[in-house]
Simulated scan of single mutants.
Amino acid sequence: MSPGPFGTTTAPRGLLQRFRAAPVDVADLHDVAVQLLPRLASARLHLGLVRRPGAGTVLHVEEDERVQRVALTDLADDMSRAGVPGTAAGITAALRSWVERRPVTDAAAAASGIAVLDWVDRSETAVGWSVVVVRGDLAVAWVPSPAARTAELHRVRSASTGRAHEVPLQVRVEGPLALFSHRTVPVLASAALVAPELMLQRIATTGLALPDMHVVVTPHRPVACADPGVARRLAGQTSEASVTLPWRSVVDLPWL
């Protein structure tokens, strides 16, 4: 299960709901925001609280072409539903995570975007190429703004493909499998697939030969490489959704 907007996962429904943490208080969230937001702001990222007479306070986030406004009452309710502890430390961690997950600007994608594979839609039956920007241990997908022109889309995607070559990945061989992974940002494992021929060469240096390599892709997980039969068995043995592809077809996948 992927973390939500506050770095938490939703707990299963059932008896444990009786023991949920106390709701996040709006006043406590306000106090945390006053202290934290100036430390997270930068020359391009503007964060602030705006008081609306008769309508409460909103959190204003502005970075290049991206502008967000969310009522503190709504944000506190969302945190409570996500199980965020109502302590200063819990609220601080959740608010920091929320800001880190803000939309990626076109300029940020152009400057530091990396090409990876991600699900095409919520049905998780197909994958495509996406551009992500890494913020700490988090990778946030870029959704082009309405102002982004076709030429700009091409430049960003081309540059992100080039950066994918430079992502440091670990390779581990387990029997007939080779696993590509990233130490801290799992989704970056699929960056290797921009150059599957280099993957084959790197695997060969371990002593494992995969002339007809197929890859088992589960976004946000290590990429498994194996012969076709082994790859199919591996995909059938896991409960997670995955896509199995011959290595030659990976570079032709669509952009999201």
Rank of each mutant, 00 (worst) to 15 (best):
P53G: 08
P53L: 05
P53C: 03
P53V: 03
G54R: 02
A55F: 04
A55S: 12
A55W: 04
T57M: 04
T57S: 12
V58H: 01
V58C: 02
V58W: 00
V58R: 04
V58G: 01
L59H: 06
H60A: 14
V61W: 02
V61Y: 03
E62W: 07
E62G: 10
E65L: 10
E65Q: 13
E65K: 11
R66F: 12
V67W: 07
V67S: 10
V67Q: 11
V67H: 14
Q68M: 09
Q68H: 11
Q68Y: 04
R69V: 10
R69P: 01
V70Q: 13
L72N: 09
T73E: 14
T73N: 09
T73S: 11
D74W: 03
D74E: 12
D74F: 05
L75H: 05
L75D: 02
L75C: 09
L75T: 01
A76Q: 00
A76I: 04
D77F: 13
D77R: 15
D77A: 15
D77C: 07
D78V: 00
D78N: 08
D78G: 07
D78Q: 14
D78C: 03
M79F: 08
M79R: 12
M79T: 08
S80L: 06
S80Q: 09
S80C: 09
A82W: 08
A82I: 09
G83S: 05
G83V: 09
V84P: 06
V84T: 04
V84M: 03
V84W: 00
